[in-house]
Design a protein around this nucleic acid. Structure first.
Lengths: 230, 230
DNA sequence: TTCAAGAATTGAACGCGTTCAATTCAATTG
DNA sequence: CAATTGAATTGAACGCGTTCAATTCTTGAA
């Protein structure tokens, strides 16, 4: 096997991937069948399984591309207040994901089943979650207006949790064009803008630290194993 | 057909329901097969589908029982501060759901697929969501310490949204005994206790109203249809 | 040119959730 | 006591995602 063959197999893989994304968008994740995906790609059913481990796996490949784009885009956001940087990152992410809503719904649905390799809070997806937290740390660190009382790492954990919530909501948002989700991002930006004021309130910084300490280990994938109690 | 037959068919239905719950708990929702459920109930596969529309439908029947219990329990909570009433409702709900985590994971997973009758934010589940909002309205109304600036209906919508979030998190919570979720409820109670102070801050009451106005229509199932734009 | 080796590709098969025409059964009616 | 009616029940069948032994194709070495 040589250069030509590698390109050919890569092209086949790409054809399967592309026809899958088309069908997911056309008829939804569940209604798109692997046989139809293979058929449109001009190959047999078995070959689709040679290139992808499962139907979910195709959606996962899409998600990983989007993840890379998110991380790259987060590093490029122009300096400014956290509120502006966060909302820029979220808006751009939603825009990138918009054409793939159906595929991502399928992924999330599979990602809730325990034992699945794509489980959202599962051990196998921990590296993905850590990359996202790192990306949000970059978003926070590039801002000058984050109060001293609030650790950048804590804020990054909370913004990632908020990101997860907003994506979940967006996938289900029944409003036309998902405009409620857009309004939710606006709402988040307005309130993030008041972070400096809020941080002066007694108890606020402590609450942020506490919430981050609860969610952080779960999201980063630490201390999630069940210890035996004597 | 008379009394005796009705009782017999009800008993059959209950046998299928019970063996399904057993198997969900034993091996998880996905690994429990309809053939095995029917087999343990001592009937044929087809009969299970005579009594339940689908595998998800069995989990939905469980959820509806839990919903009834939640509504009834919410009405029985002793008077006191909102924080205490909310945390009592949540703790009791988690305790009731604990034995059925696996079944509920299956339900939630199905409830994210668009077009499914069990879709969490879908039109068909709107009556269920309205009942939950009504139950939370009762929780709020039974408290004397809710600030005037915050409408009971708005707070109920937000507490229901928080309930959904906490249940979602609980279903995925990898910490032993889901202790992180318990800590999250404690955290919520502590912060709800400060609602009176927070309500005095400029902008807080407005933010509550705004968020409730965004989430309310989606949760209550209003204005979710796509209007044609001229 | 021949050949062995490994990649690319196939399609039959499995168990799953689900459907449905057919059958059995029990109870009311004439 | 049949006859009838409708519910309770069955099991074969369908299409799905997935697996895998078998086959074809490609390529570098002899």
């Amino acid at each position: 096997m040589r250069r030509g063959a590698i390109q050919k197999s890569e092209a086949t893989r790409e054809r399967i991937y592309a026809s899958a994304l088309e069908l997911f968008a056309e008829k939804g994740f569940a209604a798109a069948t692997m046989r139809e995906i293979a058929g449109r790609a001009g190959c047999s059913l078995g070959l689709a399984y040679h290139y992808f481990p499962s139907k979910d796996g195709i959606a996962l490949a899409l998600y990983e591309r989007l993840l890379d784009e998110f991380v790259a885009a987060a590093a490029e956001i122009s300096p400014g207040p956290v509120a502006a940087r966060w909302s820029a990152a979220m808006s751009a992410d939603l825009a990138r994901m918009a054409p793939h809503r159906a595929a991502l719904v399928g992924l999330i649905s599979a990602g809730l089943a325990p034992g699945s390799p794509t489980q959202v809070l599962g051990a196998e997806a921990a590296p993905i979650r850590r990359r996202m937290i790192a990306a949000f740390t970059a978003v926070v660190s590039g801002a000058r207006d984050v109060p001293r009382a609030i650790a950048a790492g804590d804020l990054a954990v909370l913004l990632y949790a908020l990101h997860l919530l907003i994506i979940f909501f967006w996938l289900q948002d029944p409003s036309p064009g998902q405009r409620t989700t857009v309004a939710l991002v606006d709402f988040g930006r307005e309130n993030l803008r008041r972070l400096g004021l809020a941080a002066r309130l007694p108890g606020f910084a402590g609450a942020v630290r506490r919430l981050a300490s609860l969610l952080g280990p779960v999201l980063a994938g630490e201390a999630t194993s069940v210890e035996s109690q004597p």
